[in-house]
Design a protein around this nucleic acid. Structure first.
Lengths: 236, 236
DNA sequence: GACTGCCTAGAGTATATACTCTAATAATAG
DNA sequence: CTATTATTAGAGTATATACTCTAGGCAGTC
Protein backbone atom coordinates (compact mmCIF):
# COMPACT_ATOMS: atom_id res chain seq x y z
CA UNK A 1 0.00 0.00 0.00
CA UNK A 2 1.51 3.27 -1.07
CA UNK A 3 1.19 6.10 1.36
CA UNK A 4 1.95 9.73 0.93
CA UNK A 5 2.68 12.27 3.61
CA UNK A 6 0.47 15.31 3.92
CA UNK A 7 1.46 18.63 5.42
CA UNK A 8 -0.08 17.51 8.66
CA UNK A 9 2.30 14.61 8.89
CA UNK A 10 -0.50 12.12 8.34
CA UNK A 11 -0.32 9.36 5.78
CA UNK A 12 -2.96 8.91 3.12
CA UNK A 13 -4.17 5.88 1.29
CA UNK A 14 -4.40 5.78 -2.49
CA UNK A 15 -8.15 5.74 -2.25
CA UNK A 16 -8.20 9.03 -0.35
CA UNK A 17 -5.63 10.53 -2.67
CA UNK A 18 -7.95 9.76 -5.57
CA UNK A 19 -10.84 11.50 -3.86
CA UNK A 20 -8.71 14.50 -2.98
CA UNK A 21 -7.17 14.89 -6.42
CA UNK A 22 -10.50 14.37 -8.12
CA UNK A 23 -12.08 17.13 -6.08
CA UNK A 24 -9.17 19.43 -6.80
CA UNK A 25 -9.23 18.76 -10.53
CA UNK A 26 -13.01 18.93 -10.76
CA UNK A 27 -13.01 22.28 -8.97
CA UNK A 28 -10.23 23.67 -11.12
CA UNK A 29 -11.23 22.45 -14.56
CA UNK A 30 -14.82 21.29 -14.21
CA UNK A 31 -16.00 17.70 -13.90
CA UNK A 32 -16.82 17.57 -17.58
CA UNK A 33 -13.21 18.26 -18.56
CA UNK A 34 -11.65 15.74 -16.18
CA UNK A 35 -11.53 12.06 -17.11
CA UNK A 36 -10.50 9.15 -14.93
CA UNK A 37 -7.31 9.00 -16.98
CA UNK A 38 -6.55 12.60 -16.05
CA UNK A 39 -7.01 11.83 -12.40
CA UNK A 40 -4.72 8.81 -12.59
CA UNK A 41 -2.10 10.77 -14.52
CA UNK A 42 -2.25 13.61 -12.02
CA UNK A 43 -1.52 11.15 -9.21
CA UNK A 44 1.04 9.28 -11.33
CA UNK A 45 -0.84 6.03 -10.84
CA UNK A 46 -2.19 3.67 -13.47
CA UNK A 47 -5.80 3.69 -14.66
CA UNK A 48 -6.04 0.11 -13.46
CA UNK A 49 -5.10 1.23 -10.00
CA UNK A 50 -7.78 3.88 -9.97
CA UNK A 51 -10.38 1.36 -11.11
CA UNK A 52 -9.28 -1.01 -8.41
CA UNK A 53 -10.45 1.53 -5.85
CA UNK A 54 -13.54 2.86 -7.64
CA UNK A 55 -15.88 1.08 -9.98
CA UNK A 56 -16.36 4.19 -12.09
CA UNK A 57 -16.30 7.96 -12.19
CA UNK A 58 -19.81 8.21 -10.77
CA UNK A 59 -18.71 6.42 -7.63
CA UNK A 60 -15.94 8.92 -7.08
CA UNK A 61 -18.35 11.81 -7.49
CA UNK A 62 -20.89 10.17 -5.24
CA UNK A 63 -18.40 9.80 -2.44
CA UNK A 64 -17.24 13.38 -2.80
CA UNK A 65 -20.85 14.45 -2.58
CA UNK A 66 -21.26 12.50 0.63
CA UNK A 67 -18.34 14.39 2.14
CA UNK A 68 -19.94 17.66 1.06
CA UNK A 69 -23.26 16.59 2.51
CA UNK A 70 -21.66 15.64 5.80
CA UNK A 71 -19.84 18.96 6.02
CA UNK A 72 -22.92 21.07 5.39
CA UNK A 73 -25.10 18.95 7.68
CA UNK A 74 -22.51 19.40 10.39
CA UNK A 75 -22.51 23.18 10.05
CA UNK A 76 -26.26 23.53 9.66
CA UNK A 77 -27.00 21.78 12.92
CA UNK A 78 -29.32 24.36 14.49
CA UNK A 79 -29.32 24.26 18.30
CA UNK A 80 -32.71 23.37 19.76
CA UNK A 81 -32.06 24.41 23.35
CA UNK A 82 -31.00 28.03 23.04
CA UNK A 83 -31.95 31.10 21.04
CA UNK A 84 -29.94 32.07 17.99
CA UNK A 85 -27.60 35.05 17.81
CA UNK A 86 -26.27 37.26 15.07
CA UNK A 87 -22.92 35.51 15.50
CA UNK A 88 -24.64 32.18 14.83
CA UNK A 89 -26.14 33.55 11.66
CA UNK A 90 -22.77 34.87 10.50
CA UNK A 91 -21.24 31.50 11.24
CA UNK A 92 -23.91 29.68 9.22
CA UNK A 93 -23.44 31.97 6.26
CA UNK A 94 -19.65 31.82 6.34
CA UNK A 95 -19.71 28.04 6.69
CA UNK A 96 -22.16 27.48 3.89
CA UNK A 97 -20.16 29.63 1.50
CA UNK A 98 -16.93 27.94 2.54
CA UNK A 99 -18.52 24.57 1.78
CA UNK A 100 -19.84 25.85 -1.51
CA UNK A 101 -16.31 26.93 -2.37
CA UNK A 102 -14.66 23.66 -1.40
CA UNK A 103 -17.05 21.63 -3.52
CA UNK A 104 -17.79 24.20 -6.15
CA UNK A 105 -17.56 21.75 -9.07
CA UNK A 106 -20.69 20.09 -7.80
CA UNK A 107 -23.26 22.78 -8.45
CA UNK A 108 -21.66 23.56 -11.78
CA UNK A 109 -22.64 20.28 -13.41
CA UNK A 110 -25.43 19.42 -11.04
CA UNK A 111 -28.13 18.51 -13.52
CA UNK A 112 -25.93 16.22 -15.54
CA UNK A 113 -24.61 14.53 -12.42
CA UNK A 114 -28.12 13.90 -11.10
CA UNK A 115 -29.21 12.56 -14.47
CA UNK A 116 -26.32 10.11 -14.50
CA UNK A 117 -26.72 8.73 -11.00
CA UNK A 118 -30.10 7.93 -9.41
CA UNK A 119 -28.53 7.51 -5.96
CA UNK A 120 -27.11 10.98 -6.19
CA UNK A 121 -30.42 12.38 -7.40
CA UNK A 122 -32.26 10.90 -4.47
CA UNK A 123 -29.64 11.96 -1.92
CA UNK A 124 -29.36 15.44 -3.32
CA UNK A 125 -33.09 15.88 -3.17
CA UNK A 126 -33.11 15.00 0.51
CA UNK A 127 -30.08 17.17 1.06
CA UNK A 128 -31.89 20.13 -0.49
CA UNK A 129 -34.88 19.53 1.71
CA UNK A 130 -32.71 19.41 4.83
CA UNK A 131 -31.04 22.66 3.83
CA UNK A 132 -34.36 24.35 3.16
CA UNK A 133 -35.66 23.14 6.49
CA UNK A 134 -32.54 24.46 8.21
CA UNK A 135 -32.88 27.88 6.58
CA UNK A 136 -36.52 27.89 7.59
CA UNK A 137 -35.59 27.09 11.17
CA UNK A 138 -32.95 29.80 11.21
CA UNK A 139 -35.56 32.33 10.11
CA UNK A 140 -37.92 31.12 12.78
CA UNK A 141 -35.28 31.44 15.47
CA UNK A 142 -34.15 34.83 14.18
CA UNK A 143 -37.74 35.94 14.69
CA UNK A 144 -37.79 34.36 18.16
CA UNK A 145 -34.63 36.27 18.99
CA UNK A 146 -36.24 39.50 17.86
CA UNK A 147 -33.76 40.03 15.04
CA UNK A 148 -36.30 39.83 12.25
CA UNK A 149 -40.03 40.29 12.37
CA UNK A 150 -42.01 37.07 12.48
CA UNK A 151 -43.71 36.14 9.23
CA UNK A 152 -46.43 33.68 8.32
CA UNK A 153 -45.21 30.19 7.55
CA UNK A 154 -45.82 30.32 3.81
CA UNK A 155 -43.92 33.56 3.37
CA UNK A 156 -41.06 32.18 5.42
CA UNK A 157 -40.91 29.08 3.25
CA UNK A 158 -40.81 31.12 0.08
CA UNK A 159 -38.11 33.34 1.59
CA UNK A 160 -36.07 30.29 2.56
CA UNK A 161 -36.30 28.99 -0.96
CA UNK A 162 -35.11 32.33 -2.30
CA UNK A 163 -32.17 32.25 0.09
CA UNK A 164 -31.31 28.79 -1.18
CA UNK A 165 -31.53 29.92 -4.80
CA UNK A 166 -29.27 32.90 -4.16
CA UNK A 167 -26.72 30.82 -2.26
CA UNK A 168 -26.49 27.98 -4.74
CA UNK A 169 -26.41 30.24 -7.76
CA UNK A 170 -23.99 32.83 -6.48
CA UNK A 171 -20.83 31.03 -7.54
CA UNK A 172 -22.15 30.44 -11.05
CA UNK A 173 -23.04 34.09 -11.34
CA UNK A 174 -19.55 35.15 -10.32
CA UNK A 175 -17.95 32.81 -12.79
CA UNK A 176 -20.12 33.95 -15.68
CA UNK A 177 -19.79 37.62 -14.76
CA UNK A 178 -16.03 37.44 -15.21
CA UNK A 179 -14.69 38.57 -18.54
CA UNK A 180 -11.78 36.20 -18.97
CA UNK A 181 -10.31 33.21 -17.24
CA UNK A 182 -8.70 34.46 -14.09
CA UNK A 183 -8.88 31.47 -11.79
CA UNK A 184 -7.17 33.28 -8.92
CA UNK A 185 -9.52 36.20 -9.27
CA UNK A 186 -12.40 34.24 -7.81
CA UNK A 187 -11.28 35.31 -4.40
CA UNK A 188 -12.70 34.77 -0.96
CA UNK A 189 -13.80 38.40 -1.00
CA UNK A 190 -15.98 37.92 -4.05
CA UNK A 191 -17.33 34.66 -2.71
CA UNK A 192 -18.39 36.37 0.47
CA UNK A 193 -20.30 39.00 -1.47
CA UNK A 194 -22.85 36.24 -1.67
CA UNK A 195 -23.45 36.89 2.01
CA UNK A 196 -24.20 40.50 1.13
CA UNK A 197 -26.83 39.24 -1.29
CA UNK A 198 -28.36 36.92 1.27
CA UNK A 199 -28.49 39.62 3.90
CA UNK A 200 -30.14 41.87 1.33
CA UNK A 201 -33.07 39.46 1.46
CA UNK A 202 -33.37 39.99 5.19
CA UNK A 203 -33.08 43.77 5.18
CA UNK A 204 -36.80 44.62 4.96
CA UNK A 205 -37.65 42.25 7.79
CA UNK A 206 -35.15 43.49 10.34
CA UNK A 207 -36.49 44.76 13.66
CA UNK A 208 -35.60 48.32 14.67
CA UNK A 209 -33.49 46.98 17.54
CA UNK A 210 -31.20 44.95 15.32
CA UNK A 211 -31.47 46.83 12.05
CA UNK A 212 -28.28 48.84 12.41
CA UNK A 213 -26.22 45.91 13.61
CA UNK A 214 -27.24 43.68 10.71
CA UNK A 215 -26.77 46.48 8.19
CA UNK A 216 -23.26 47.00 9.57
CA UNK A 217 -22.59 43.28 9.26
CA UNK A 218 -23.90 43.30 5.71
CA UNK A 219 -21.70 46.27 4.91
CA UNK A 220 -18.65 44.16 5.66
CA UNK A 221 -19.47 41.95 2.69
CA UNK A 222 -20.38 44.71 0.27
CA UNK A 223 -18.61 44.49 -3.08
CA UNK A 224 -15.72 46.92 -2.83
CA UNK A 225 -14.90 47.51 -6.48
CA UNK A 226 -17.34 47.92 -9.33
CA UNK A 227 -14.92 46.21 -11.76
CA UNK A 228 -15.66 42.56 -11.22
CA UNK A 229 -19.32 42.96 -10.45
CA UNK A 230 -20.75 44.37 -13.60
CA UNK A 231 -23.86 45.54 -11.78
CA UNK A 232 -22.99 48.93 -10.41
CA UNK A 233 -21.74 50.79 -13.43
CA UNK A 234 -24.26 49.45 -15.85
CA UNK A 235 -25.70 51.63 -18.58
CA UNK A 236 -28.90 51.21 -20.52
CA UNK B 1 -32.07 22.93 -51.64
CA UNK B 2 -34.29 20.78 -49.51
CA UNK B 3 -37.22 22.51 -47.92
CA UNK B 4 -39.65 21.28 -45.36
CA UNK B 5 -43.06 22.60 -44.63
CA UNK B 6 -43.92 23.88 -41.17
CA UNK B 7 -47.35 24.04 -39.65
CA UNK B 8 -47.53 27.68 -40.71
CA UNK B 9 -47.15 26.69 -44.32
CA UNK B 10 -43.74 28.29 -44.53
CA UNK B 11 -40.73 26.49 -45.95
CA UNK B 12 -37.53 26.12 -43.99
CA UNK B 13 -33.96 25.85 -45.09
CA UNK B 14 -31.68 23.10 -43.82
CA UNK B 15 -29.70 25.63 -41.87
CA UNK B 16 -32.76 26.69 -39.91
CA UNK B 17 -33.84 23.10 -39.43
CA UNK B 18 -30.48 22.40 -37.85
CA UNK B 19 -30.89 25.28 -35.43
CA UNK B 20 -34.43 24.23 -34.55
CA UNK B 21 -33.61 20.57 -34.05
CA UNK B 22 -30.50 21.38 -32.06
CA UNK B 23 -32.47 23.57 -29.68
CA UNK B 24 -35.12 20.90 -29.30
CA UNK B 25 -32.60 18.14 -28.64
CA UNK B 26 -30.48 20.29 -26.32
CA UNK B 27 -33.55 21.22 -24.29
CA UNK B 28 -34.76 17.63 -24.09
CA UNK B 29 -31.53 15.78 -23.42
CA UNK B 30 -29.02 18.43 -22.44
CA UNK B 31 -26.33 19.89 -24.65
CA UNK B 32 -23.75 17.56 -23.15
CA UNK B 33 -25.63 14.49 -24.33
CA UNK B 34 -26.25 15.68 -27.88
CA UNK B 35 -23.53 15.40 -30.50
CA UNK B 36 -23.50 16.84 -33.99
CA UNK B 37 -24.04 13.29 -35.24
CA UNK B 38 -27.20 13.05 -33.15
CA UNK B 39 -28.50 16.26 -34.65
CA UNK B 40 -27.79 15.11 -38.18
CA UNK B 41 -29.38 11.72 -37.52
CA UNK B 42 -32.47 13.36 -36.02
CA UNK B 43 -32.90 15.40 -39.19
CA UNK B 44 -31.98 12.44 -41.39
CA UNK B 45 -29.21 14.42 -43.02
CA UNK B 46 -25.53 13.55 -43.29
CA UNK B 47 -22.85 14.87 -40.90
CA UNK B 48 -21.17 16.43 -43.92
CA UNK B 49 -24.31 18.38 -44.65
CA UNK B 50 -24.48 19.69 -41.12
CA UNK B 51 -20.85 20.77 -41.27
CA UNK B 52 -21.49 22.48 -44.56
CA UNK B 53 -23.84 24.85 -42.73
CA UNK B 54 -21.95 25.19 -39.44
CA UNK B 55 -18.22 25.09 -38.78
CA UNK B 56 -18.72 23.33 -35.45
CA UNK B 57 -21.04 22.70 -32.55
CA UNK B 58 -20.05 25.94 -30.83
CA UNK B 59 -21.29 27.93 -33.79
CA UNK B 60 -24.67 26.31 -33.58
CA UNK B 61 -24.91 27.09 -29.89
CA UNK B 62 -23.72 30.63 -30.43
CA UNK B 63 -26.42 31.29 -32.96
CA UNK B 64 -29.09 29.81 -30.74
CA UNK B 65 -27.90 32.08 -27.96
CA UNK B 66 -28.22 35.08 -30.24
CA UNK B 67 -31.86 34.16 -30.87
CA UNK B 68 -32.40 33.88 -27.13
CA UNK B 69 -30.70 37.20 -26.54
CA UNK B 70 -32.82 38.88 -29.19
CA UNK B 71 -36.01 37.47 -27.71
CA UNK B 72 -35.27 38.61 -24.17
CA UNK B 73 -34.03 42.00 -25.29
CA UNK B 74 -37.25 42.43 -27.21
CA UNK B 75 -39.40 41.65 -24.21
CA UNK B 76 -37.34 43.64 -21.74
CA UNK B 77 -37.65 46.85 -23.67
CA UNK B 78 -38.85 49.14 -20.88
CA UNK B 79 -40.91 52.09 -22.13
CA UNK B 80 -39.29 55.44 -21.36
CA UNK B 81 -42.27 57.66 -22.02
CA UNK B 82 -44.94 56.27 -19.73
CA UNK B 83 -45.22 54.90 -16.22
CA UNK B 84 -45.24 51.17 -15.65
CA UNK B 85 -48.28 49.17 -14.59
CA UNK B 86 -48.88 45.92 -12.79
CA UNK B 87 -49.87 44.43 -16.13
CA UNK B 88 -46.50 45.43 -17.54
CA UNK B 89 -44.75 43.72 -14.68
CA UNK B 90 -46.77 40.56 -15.17
CA UNK B 91 -45.95 40.64 -18.86
CA UNK B 92 -42.23 40.99 -18.15
CA UNK B 93 -42.26 38.10 -15.73
CA UNK B 94 -44.29 35.83 -17.98
CA UNK B 95 -42.12 36.65 -20.98
CA UNK B 96 -38.85 36.09 -19.17
CA UNK B 97 -39.97 32.71 -17.88
CA UNK B 98 -41.27 31.74 -21.31
CA UNK B 99 -37.89 32.61 -22.79
CA UNK B 100 -36.13 30.71 -20.05
CA UNK B 101 -38.26 27.72 -20.92
CA UNK B 102 -37.69 27.89 -24.67
CA UNK B 103 -33.93 28.01 -24.26
CA UNK B 104 -33.64 26.08 -21.05
CA UNK B 105 -30.64 24.03 -22.15
CA UNK B 106 -28.59 27.17 -22.10
CA UNK B 107 -28.47 27.90 -18.38
CA UNK B 108 -27.99 24.25 -17.62
CA UNK B 109 -24.50 24.02 -19.09
CA UNK B 110 -23.75 27.71 -18.97
CA UNK B 111 -20.31 27.59 -17.39
CA UNK B 112 -18.99 24.98 -19.76
CA UNK B 113 -20.41 26.80 -22.76
CA UNK B 114 -18.81 30.07 -21.71
CA UNK B 115 -15.50 28.34 -21.10
CA UNK B 116 -15.55 26.84 -24.58
CA UNK B 117 -16.42 29.98 -26.50
CA UNK B 118 -14.93 33.41 -25.74
CA UNK B 119 -17.45 35.17 -28.00
CA UNK B 120 -20.27 33.63 -26.05
CA UNK B 121 -18.63 34.57 -22.75
CA UNK B 122 -18.31 38.18 -23.77
CA UNK B 123 -21.83 38.38 -25.20
CA UNK B 124 -23.39 36.64 -22.24
CA UNK B 125 -21.68 39.02 -19.86
CA UNK B 126 -23.15 41.98 -21.68
CA UNK B 127 -26.51 40.23 -21.86
CA UNK B 128 -26.47 39.75 -18.09
CA UNK B 129 -25.67 43.40 -17.58
CA UNK B 130 -28.52 44.47 -19.83
CA UNK B 131 -30.92 42.22 -17.95
CA UNK B 132 -29.77 43.52 -14.59
CA UNK B 133 -30.14 47.08 -15.84
CA UNK B 134 -33.65 46.27 -17.07
CA UNK B 135 -34.66 44.76 -13.75
CA UNK B 136 -33.24 47.78 -12.01
CA UNK B 137 -35.23 50.08 -14.25
CA UNK B 138 -38.39 48.11 -13.65
CA UNK B 139 -37.93 48.52 -9.91
CA UNK B 140 -37.34 52.23 -10.35
CA UNK B 141 -40.50 52.61 -12.40
CA UNK B 142 -42.51 50.45 -10.00
CA UNK B 143 -41.49 52.90 -7.32
CA UNK B 144 -42.41 55.85 -9.58
CA UNK B 145 -45.82 54.27 -10.11
CA UNK B 146 -46.30 53.95 -6.35
CA UNK B 147 -46.45 50.16 -6.46
CA UNK B 148 -43.36 49.60 -4.34
CA UNK B 149 -41.66 51.94 -1.94
CA UNK B 150 -38.62 53.71 -3.38
CA UNK B 151 -35.30 52.38 -2.15
CA UNK B 152 -31.76 53.70 -2.25
CA UNK B 153 -29.84 52.84 -5.40
CA UNK B 154 -27.48 50.31 -3.81
CA UNK B 155 -30.31 48.34 -2.23
CA UNK B 156 -32.19 48.36 -5.51
CA UNK B 157 -29.12 47.01 -7.32
CA UNK B 158 -28.69 44.23 -4.81
CA UNK B 159 -32.40 43.40 -5.08
CA UNK B 160 -32.17 43.30 -8.87
CA UNK B 161 -29.28 40.92 -8.64
CA UNK B 162 -31.27 38.68 -6.31
CA UNK B 163 -34.17 38.70 -8.75
CA UNK B 164 -31.79 37.68 -11.51
CA UNK B 165 -30.36 34.87 -9.39
CA UNK B 166 -33.81 33.55 -8.55
CA UNK B 167 -34.99 33.72 -12.15
CA UNK B 168 -31.96 32.06 -13.70
CA UNK B 169 -31.75 29.35 -11.06
CA UNK B 170 -35.40 28.50 -10.81
CA UNK B 171 -35.44 25.96 -13.63
CA UNK B 172 -32.40 24.16 -12.26
CA UNK B 173 -34.02 23.97 -8.86
CA UNK B 174 -37.18 22.47 -10.30
CA UNK B 175 -35.22 19.87 -12.22
CA UNK B 176 -33.13 18.85 -9.24
CA UNK B 177 -36.10 18.85 -6.88
CA UNK B 178 -37.82 16.19 -8.96
CA UNK B 179 -37.43 12.63 -7.81
CA UNK B 180 -37.30 10.83 -11.12
CA UNK B 181 -37.22 11.65 -14.79
CA UNK B 182 -40.60 12.92 -15.71
CA UNK B 183 -39.94 15.21 -18.63
CA UNK B 184 -43.57 16.12 -19.08
CA UNK B 185 -43.95 16.89 -15.41
CA UNK B 186 -41.96 20.07 -15.76
CA UNK B 187 -45.11 21.88 -16.61
CA UNK B 188 -45.92 25.47 -17.29
CA UNK B 189 -47.53 25.62 -13.87
CA UNK B 190 -44.36 24.70 -12.09
CA UNK B 191 -42.34 27.01 -14.27
CA UNK B 192 -44.55 29.90 -13.33
CA UNK B 193 -44.06 29.22 -9.66
CA UNK B 194 -40.82 31.03 -10.30
CA UNK B 195 -42.95 34.14 -10.59
CA UNK B 196 -44.29 33.43 -7.13
CA UNK B 197 -40.71 33.37 -5.89
CA UNK B 198 -39.83 36.62 -7.62
CA UNK B 199 -42.91 38.35 -6.26
CA UNK B 200 -41.95 37.07 -2.82
CA UNK B 201 -38.92 39.33 -3.10
CA UNK B 202 -41.16 42.32 -3.67
CA UNK B 203 -43.67 41.62 -0.90
CA UNK B 204 -41.99 43.63 1.87
CA UNK B 205 -41.63 46.67 -0.35
CA UNK B 206 -45.21 46.91 -1.57
CA UNK B 207 -47.10 50.12 -0.88
CA UNK B 208 -50.34 49.85 1.08
CA UNK B 209 -52.29 50.95 -2.01
CA UNK B 210 -51.05 48.10 -4.15
CA UNK B 211 -50.26 45.48 -1.56
CA UNK B 212 -53.47 43.50 -1.89
CA UNK B 213 -53.47 43.56 -5.66
CA UNK B 214 -49.90 42.28 -5.92
CA UNK B 215 -50.50 39.64 -3.26
CA UNK B 216 -53.51 38.46 -5.22
CA UNK B 217 -51.43 38.32 -8.37
CA UNK B 218 -48.74 36.39 -6.53
CA UNK B 219 -51.36 34.00 -5.22
CA UNK B 220 -52.15 32.97 -8.79
CA UNK B 221 -48.68 31.50 -9.11
CA UNK B 222 -48.51 29.80 -5.75
CA UNK B 223 -47.49 26.16 -5.85
CA UNK B 224 -50.74 24.25 -5.64
CA UNK B 225 -49.58 20.82 -4.55
CA UNK B 226 -46.89 20.07 -2.01
CA UNK B 227 -45.82 16.92 -3.93
CA UNK B 228 -43.40 18.29 -6.47
CA UNK B 229 -42.09 21.13 -4.41
CA UNK B 230 -40.42 19.43 -1.51
CA UNK B 231 -40.48 22.65 0.46
CA UNK B 232 -43.85 22.78 2.05
CA UNK B 233 -44.08 19.48 3.84
CA UNK B 234 -40.50 19.34 5.01
CA UNK B 235 -39.68 17.91 8.40
CA UNK B 236 -36.59 18.42 10.48
C1' DG C 1 -26.15 21.23 -73.23
C1' DA C 2 -22.56 22.94 -70.53
C1' DC C 3 -21.22 25.74 -66.85
C1' DT C 4 -21.60 27.42 -62.16
C1' DG C 5 -22.83 27.70 -57.42
C1' DC C 6 -25.18 25.79 -53.89
C1' DC C 7 -26.20 21.81 -51.39
C1' DT C 8 -25.90 16.87 -49.90
C1' DA C 9 -24.36 11.95 -48.99
C1' DG C 10 -21.62 8.96 -46.83
C1' DA C 11 -17.46 6.91 -45.88
C1' DG C 12 -13.63 7.79 -43.18
C1' DT C 13 -10.38 9.50 -39.31
C1' DA C 14 -7.76 11.16 -35.36
C1' DT C 15 -8.44 11.56 -30.81
C1' DA C 16 -10.61 10.83 -26.47
C1' DT C 17 -13.13 8.34 -22.95
C1' DA C 18 -14.31 5.04 -19.69
C1' DC C 19 -13.06 1.03 -18.49
C1' DT C 20 -10.92 -4.13 -18.56
C1' DC C 21 -7.52 -7.69 -18.13
C1' DT C 22 -3.39 -9.96 -16.90
C1' DA C 23 0.50 -10.30 -14.52
C1' DA C 24 3.34 -8.85 -11.15
C1' DT C 25 4.58 -6.84 -6.70
C1' DA C 26 3.96 -5.60 -1.89
C1' DA C 27 1.89 -6.40 2.60
C1' DT C 28 0.09 -9.43 6.09
C1' DA C 29 -1.27 -13.70 8.61
C1' DG C 30 -0.07 -17.96 10.31
C1' DC D 1 9.02 -18.87 5.30
C1' DT D 2 4.69 -19.50 2.97
C1' DA D 3 0.16 -18.69 1.65
C1' DT D 4 -3.06 -15.42 0.97
C1' DT D 5 -4.79 -11.06 0.16
C1' DA D 6 -4.31 -6.27 -1.16
C1' DT D 7 -2.47 -3.26 -4.32
C1' DT D 8 -0.40 -1.69 -8.54
C1' DA D 9 1.31 -1.23 -13.49
C1' DG D 10 0.44 -0.93 -18.00
C1' DA D 11 -1.09 -2.50 -22.21
C1' DG D 12 -5.27 -2.87 -24.49
C1' DT D 13 -10.28 -2.10 -26.17
C1' DA D 14 -14.95 -0.90 -27.56
C1' DT D 15 -17.32 2.98 -28.30
C1' DA D 16 -18.06 7.77 -29.00
C1' DT D 17 -17.06 12.36 -30.67
C1' DA D 18 -16.16 16.07 -33.57
C1' DC D 19 -15.08 16.76 -37.73
C1' DT D 20 -12.99 16.05 -42.88
C1' DC D 21 -12.96 14.77 -47.59
C1' DT D 22 -14.41 13.43 -52.00
C1' DA D 23 -17.77 12.83 -55.21
C1' DG D 24 -21.76 13.99 -56.98
C1' DG D 25 -26.67 15.97 -57.63
C1' DC D 26 -29.74 19.78 -58.67
C1' DA D 27 -31.23 24.47 -60.08
C1' DG D 28 -30.65 28.15 -62.76
C1' DT D 29 -28.26 30.68 -66.74
C1' DC D 30 -26.46 31.46 -71.05
Amino acid sequence: MTLITTNTGMTMKTRDKILLSSLELFNDKGERNITTNHIAAHLAISPGNLYYHFRNKSDIIYEIFQEYEKLVDYYLDIPEDRPITLEDMTFYLESVFDGLWSYRFFHRDLEYLLDSDPRLRQDYREFTNRCLAAINRIFAKLADAGIIQPQPEDLRSAMSLNVWLVITNWMAFLKTAHAAEEPASLSLTELKQGIYQVLTLEVPYLTPEYRERVLALREKYRPTLPEAQGVSGVEA
